[in-house]
C-alpha cells in the first residue's frame, strides 16, 4: 500500500476546509476577501517561482496581472467573445507577452532587472491611463460579463469562490510538479550558481524565460478571474504599489515556496483588511493607503530577520529557541 505523505494530508485538509468555508460564512464580503486571497495566491506562486527559483526580482508583476484582466475584459465585453473562451485566451496572451518581454529583459540582472521590470509597470499604467478609447482611461472598464460554462453562470460570489479556488489549487498543483521536475532542478541549480549550471549544460536563460512566461501566464489567469469576479477594473489595481505588495506576499510566504504563497497572500490580504478596518479607530479620519506603512515595515523586518519567509524562517527560529531545544533533548533521551 502506498503511504500518504504529511504534505498530501495537508493538501487534502486544505481542499476540505476550502469546500466547507462558504457553508459557514454567509457574508458576501468575507467570501469576496477569500476570492481576493485566491487571486493573490495565483499571482504570488508565479512570482515566488521567478524570485526564488530563478533568483530574479520582478517589480512589475502587476503588469501581467493587468494584461490578463484587460485582455479578458476587452475580448469578452468589446469583441463579444464568450467569457469562458476569453479567460484562457487572455492567460495565453499574457504568457506570450511575458515570453516576448522576457527575451530582452532577461539580458539584465540584479538591480537592472528590478528597475527594468518597474519601468515596464510604469509604462503599462501610463498606456492604460492615456489610451482611454480602448481601456476606459483612469476611471476604468466596467460591465465585464461573468464566466459561463455550459448552462452554469458564475454570477454570484459563492459560485465564483469555488471556481477561483479550483483554479488556484490547479495552479498550485502544476507549480509543485514543475518544482519537482527536471525543470525545477535546473532552476535550483541556476539559483545556486549560474556559471556552474551552465557548465553542466543547463541553458540558464531558456529556463528563466520559461519560468517567467509561466508566471506571466498565471498572472494573466489571475487577472482574468479578478476581472470576471468584480466586473470592474481600473489602472490603480495594477500599478507599481500592487507589484510591491506581491513581492511582500512572496517574501512573507518564503521565496521558492509553493505552499508558502497561500500563506503569504492570505497574511497580507487579511492584514491589509484588518488595518483598513481598524486604522480609523486608532487615528480618527485615517484610512486607505496607510496600510502600506505596515507592509513596508513588514518587508524590512522579514528581509532582515527571516529572509526565508515567515513559514520556513519562523520554524527555524522556533526550533532554535532554548525551550524547544530542551524539549527536543528531553524527547530524544526517552
Amino acid at each position: 500500500m502506498k503511504t500518504v505523505a504529511p504534505a498530501q494530508w495537508a493538501g487534502l485538509g486544505l481542499v476540505i476546509a476550502l469546500a466547507v468555508i462558504p457553508l459557514l460564512v454567509r457574508n458576501n464580503y468575507q467570501i469576496f476577501i477569500l476570492i481576493l486571497i485566491a487571486v493573490d495566491t495565483i499571482l504570488t506562486v508565479g512570482l515566488s517561482l521567478v524570485m526564488g527559483y530563478a533568483g530574479q526580482v520582478s517589480l512589475g508583476h502587476a503588469t501581467f496581472f493587468g494584461v490578463g484582466a484587460y485582455a479578458t475584459a476587452l475580448l469578452s465585453a468589446r469583441f463579444g467573445w464568450p467569457p469562458a473562451l476569453a479567460l484562457p485566451a487572455a492567460a495565453g496572451l499574457t504568457a506570450l507577452a511575458g515570453y516576448l518581454l522576457g527575451v530582452p529583459i532577461f539580458r539584465l540582472r540584479g538591480h537592472y532587472l528590478a528597475m527594468a521590470t518597474l519601468g515596464l509597470n510604469v509604462i503599462f499604467i501610463l498606456i492604460l491611463k492615456n489610451e482611454a478609447e480602448v481601456t476606459g482611461g483612469p476611471s476604468g472598464f466596467t460591465d465585464i460579463p461573468p464566466l459561463a460554462l455550459g448552462g452554469l453562470t458564475f454570477d454570484s460570489d459563492v459560485k465564483m469562490y469555488y471556481l477561483v479556488w479550483a483554479v488556484t489549487l490547479g495552479v498550485l498543483w502544476l507549480s509543485l510538479n514543475v518544482v519537482n521536475s527536471r525543470v525545477g532542478r535546473a532552476l535550483r541549480a541556476i539559483h545556486a550558481s549560474e556559471v556552474a549550471a551552465e557548465a553542466l549544460g543547463v541553458d540558464a536563460n531558456a529556463y528563466k524565460l520559461k519560468v517567467f512566461a509561466m508566471a506571466a501566464g498565471f498572472a494573466g489567469l489571475a487577472g482574468g478571474l479578478y476581472a470576471q469576479a468584480i466586473h470592474f477594473i481600473s489602472p490603480s489595481s495594477f500599478d507599481v504599489l500592487v507589484s510591491i505588495e506581491l513581492v511582500t506576499m512572496a517574501a512573507v510566504g518564503g521565496l521558492a515556496s509553493v505552499w508558502g504563497s497561500i500563506f503569504g497572500a492570505a497574511t497580507v490580504v487579511l492584514l491589509a483588511q484588518f488595518i483598513r478596518d481598524r486604522m480609523g479607530v486608532l487615528l480618527a479620519g485615517a484610512s486607505g493607503e496607510q496600510e502600506i506603512i505596515v507592509f513596508g515595515l513588514l518587508l524590512v523586518v522579514i528581509m532582515v530577520f527571516l529572509p526565508e519567509g515567515l513559514t520556513v524562517g519562523g520554524l527555524r527560529v522556533l526550533r532554535a529557541w532554548p525551550i524547544t531545544r530542551r524539549l527536543r533533548a528531553a524527547r530524544d533521551q526517552t
Binding site: V57, A251, A286, E289, Q290, I293, F295, G296, V300
Partner: peptide, 20 residues
Amino acid sequence: LSQIVVTIGASIALRGLVLL
C-alpha cells in the same frame, strides 16, 4: 535581492508615513 527588498520596504513605509 534581499537588500533591494529592504530599501523598497523602507520606501513604502516612509510613503505611508508621509501620507499619514
